[in-house]
C-alpha cells in the first residue's frame, strides 16, 4: 500500500516541522522525494504554497508536472545565476522544461553534472546520501576589511590573522597542509583600478604550525602585493590536507623538532580557549588592527556569549487586589 506509506511521510514531515518550531522557534519547510534534487524543490514548493503547511511529499502529488512547470529553473539545486542564464538562452525557463530537455544536448552543453541534475529531476537518484561527512579537502579563511586598505603592513597583519585562524582550524581537525595559498583583491564593485593576485607555496613537510604558516604567508602576501591599489579582501587557503600520523617523512627537508612545536601549539590553543581568543598570539598579527572587519552591525550573540544573552523582565504582580478580584469575577 504505497499510499499509506506516503501519507505517513507527510505526517512525519509535519512532526519534524512542529518539533523544530517548538524547540528553536525557527520555521522550516520539509520536502520529501526520491532524489535530493526533487526533495529540495519540494521543500521550496512547500514554502511557497501556504496550503501545504510547510510540508510536501513529492510522491503524493497527483500532477507533479504542473508544480514543476510553475517553478523557475533557477530554483533547481546546483543551478546558479550563470547556468540559469545559459538555460534561459536555450529557451529552458521552468523546471519542467529542464526535466524534459534532451539528454544528449544537456550532456553536451553542461557535462555529466548537468545530466545528473536532469536525471534526478526525473526521479533517478544520482547524488547519493552522505551519512558521514566527506573528509575536509581544504580550509579557507577569508574576510573583507573594514575599509579599503592600501598599505602592505595592514595586508600582512590581516593575512597573519587569517593564517592563525586557518592553522587553528587545521589543528582542531587534526590535519596538516601541504599547500598554502594567499590571495588579495580589490573590490569587484568599483569599475576602475581592479587588481587580484594569488600566490602559493608547497609545504614540505606538511604542517599546521602557526609560526611556519605565518612565515610562508608573509612571503606570499609580499609577492602578491602591488602598491597603488585599494584592497578590500584577503583570503588564505590550505589544501592537500593529510591527517596527522599519515604523513610520510620528507627526504629533503631539514628535520624539525615536531614534538616540541606540537606542544607549543597545543599550549597556545588551550590558553586561547581558556582565556579568550588571541590571548596568546604571534606579533605578526599586530596589536591594533585598523583593517579589521567592522563589527558594529553584528547581531547580538544570544546563544553563544554570556554577555549577550537575551534579557527578560520580572512580571509585576503588584496590581491592586480589587482589579484582580473584579477580573476573576468576570472570568
Amino acid at each position: 500500500m504505497p499510499w499509506s506509506i506516503a501519507a505517513d511521510l507527510t505526517d512525519y514531515g509535519h512532526k519534524i516541522r512542529t518539533t523544530v518550531k517548538q524547540w528553536t522557534g525557527i520555521p522550516v519547510s520539509v520536502g520529501i522525494a526520491k532524489t535530493k534534487t526533487l526533495a529540495k524543490l519540494a521543500a521550496h514548493a512547500a514554502k511557497r504554497y501556504p496550503s501545504l503547511n510547510g510540508v510536501l511529499d513529492f510522491g503524493t502529488l497527483a500532477d507533479p508536472d504542473t508544480v514543476l512547470a510553475s517553478l523557475d529553473v533557477g530554483e533547481v539545486w546546483g543551478i546558479g545565476r550563470n547556468l540559469k542564464a545559459k538555460l534561459n538562452g536555450m529557451g529552458i525557463k521552468t523546471v519542467l522544461q529542464l526535466q524534459q530537455a534532451d539528454e544528449r544536448l544537456i550532456k553536451k552543453k553542461f557535462g555529466v553534472l548537468g545530466l545528473r541534475t536532469v536525471l534526478e529531476l526525473r526521479g533517478t537518484p544520482c547524488f547519493p546520501m552522505e551519512p558521514v561527512a566527506a573528509p575536509v579537502t581544504m580550509r579557507i579563511v577569508s574576510r573583507s576589511f573594514g575599509h579599503l586598505v592600501t598599505e602592505l603592513s595592514d595586508i600582512k597583519e590581516a593575512v597573519a590573522t587569517y593564517t592563525t585562524r586557518c592553522a587553528e582550524k587545521l589543528r582542531v581537525d587534526g590535519l596538516l597542509a601541504s599547500h598554502f595559498t594567499v590571495t588579495i583583491r580589490t573590490s569587484y564593485y568599483r569599475p576602475e583600478n581592479q587588481y587580484a593576485a594569488a600566490r602559493s607555496v608547497q609545504l614540505d613537510p606538511p604542517t599546521h604550525d602557526t609560526a611556519v604558516l605565518i612565515h610562508e604567508a608573509m612571503k606570499l602576501a609580499e609577492a602578491a602585493f602591488t602598491p597603488g591599489y585599494e584592497y578590500l579582501k584577503a583570503k588564505v587557503i590550505a589544501t592537500e590536507l593529510t591527517p596527522v600520523g599519515e604523513v610520510q617523512g620528507s627526504l629533503f627537508a631539514a628535520p624539525v623538532d615536531t614534538e616540541k612545536r606540537e606542544k607549543l601549539m597545543q599550549t597556545m590553543d588551550s590558553l586561547n580557549r581558556k582565556l579568550c581568543p588571541d590571548a596568546v598570539k604571534f606579533g605578526a598579527l599586530g596589536l591594533k588592527p585598523t583593517w579589521a572587519m567592522r563589527s558594529d552591525y553584528f547581531s547580538q550573540r544570544y546563544t553563544t556569549h554570556w554577555g549577550e544573552l537575551p534579557t527578560v523582565k520580572a512580571w509585576q504582580t503588584t496590581r491592586d487586589q480589587s482589579t484582580r478580584l473584579s477580573c476573576e469575577t468576570v472570568l
Binding site: T19, W23, T24, Y302, L309, P310, T311, V312, A314, T318
Partner: peptide, 29 residues
Amino acid sequence: AATFFMRVEGDMVVGQDVHPGDLLVVDRS
C-alpha cells in the same frame, strides 16, 4: 537542542522568586 539561557534584568520586586541578575534555564520543549 531546545534549551536557552536568559538573564533577568530590571528592579528587584518584593515577593518575587526571580531576582535581577538571575540566569534562567529555559526549555522550549
